[in-house]
Design a protein around this nucleic acid. Structure first.
Lengths: 252, 252
DNA sequence: CGATGATTTGACGACCGTCAAGTCTAGTGG
DNA sequence: CCACTAGACTTGACGGTCGTCAAATCATCG
């Protein structure tokens, strides 16, 4: 349902080749496959600001913060969340290495959501004013930047489908399949991975309670769809999980 | 909760002044307040393609259609919707005059959702390739285009908050308040307007059934929050409706 | 005026949230 | 190394919200 990073899945582009070239940060992973040449890469290097380490539980930015930078995740995982009038959170997404944070802030010059590190992480700051100036001279980068913003729009549409249309079981299956496919796009296993977020965050993201998540994990375990140990997950029957996501496999 | 078009709410810019200047389509309403001069406006005119009428119930585009144009709504209302594996719809938004459609398609060069006219409507086609070429020479327009994409991201985040966090009553109140504020931004009343969409579309959008919408309308009527007659709505107590949206007024 | 689809209303039940208690885990300090 | 603690997670019982189903009523349009 939700999409993989297309830039990481282009044919002939391996994650290793990108890492090798990457001189500064994951932003390059996103640009290289789009056809940036070495000269363009150097220009990009020049505007990319300092690296910044973000400790587990620390906010990269908060709702209402003035907007100056986009952030490319080099390492680690983040969650983004809205806060409603009562101070309750709504998790709007989980982000991992190679993804871009902060695009929601362009519209009002203030961040519209908060971003928190789920583990010790590292980002590259990309001053947006500089980036926008650079875009004028680099049509390829411009194109790619538009694709990334558009992709965030489609990602969120998928979440709306999930929240508006799916039952609890289906939502949770979709969540796992999506995580797996994103790890696969990064060269990791799509069936064995660690959940970087708490049950609470998962539940919040999926519009369910922590208890429901716990029960769903147990149900999937009993059906031999999953092996679960704490935050370690192994998907034993990915096709069936995908069928549940699609709504083909009715209940389970 | 969801946002108004900021470009239509800048101080000193009335909807009339924009309409007067607007030579071709509502895209100009979006650009003028951002500081485009007359020369820039003319350049924009040149790339904007033909107007296109779309009849009620007709699709402007469908999921999977190849992407060539963005569409600026001149007149009328649209809904956008996803379709899941079982062919069920999930309405992801309602759009009105002055709003832009199709930005989700940039990422994959195919439309990621379908758009259908809720009444006889009219749009301007904006060939995206031409627009992107133009953006290179017009930093102001570039800036504005990025704001519009970003705004779509924040809008969707608000819907995620709505679907993930709110109860039925609160969702419906939020929906009405949002509609009102968007009409207000266009120079119409924020308390008396016509619903252009069916109960079914509203329910689908809010993750509720048509029956629930009907009951909610009735409840609000009994509480003297609304006067309702078919699709005609008059909000009698906007502050209280806003309080319900915010979750301040507990149940009602 | 008749027909078709949209909307309303009621009865009922399922799904999932709430509450409460219990268990496990990881991190800390003795 | 173990005891202790706080927080994360699990499990069970119960209830409420909202979905499902069915029937009736109401608009709209040829």
């Amino acid at each position: 349902m939700m999409q993989e990073l297309p830039s990481l899945t282009l044919p002939g582009v391996t994650i290793e080749s990108l890492k090798a070239r990457c001189s500064t940060c994951s932003m390059h992973q996103l640009c290289l496959p789009m056809g940036l040449d070495v000269g363009d890469m150097d220009k990009l290097d020049k505007i990319i600001g300092r690296r910044r380490k973000v400790q587990k539980g620390e906010n990269l930015f908060r709702i209402g913060d003035p907007f100056t930078n986009l952030y490319a995740i080099r390492l680690g995982h983040f969650k983004t969340y809205q806060i409603n009038a009562n101070g309750e959170e709504q998790v709007t997404g989980f982000q991992m290495g190679g993804e871009l944070l902060g695009m929601d802030a362009i519209s009002t010059d203030r961040h519209y959501c908060s971003a928190m590190a789920l583990e010790d992480s590292e980002v590259c700051e990309i001053p947006f004013a500089s980036l926008e100036r650079l875009l004028v001279d680099m049509p390829t980068l411009l194109r790619h930047f538009h694709r990334m913003m558009s992709q965030e729009i489609t990602r969120e549409q998928s979440v709306m489908l999930l929240l508006g249309n799916m039952q609890a079981t289906q939502r949770f299956a979709a969540f796992l399949v999506n995580l797996g496919s994103r790890y696969a796009a990064r060269g990791y296993s799509d069936t064995a991975f660690q959940l970087r977020m708490s049950r609470e965050d998962i539940g919040n993201y999926l519009g369910l309670t922590i208890e429901s998540i716990s029960r769903l994990l147990n149900k999937f375990k009993k059906q031999e769809l999953l092996r679960v140990s704490n935050r370690e997950v192994e998907v034993l029957d990915l096709p069936r999980l995908k069928a549940i996501t699609a709504g083909t496999e009715t209940c389970s």
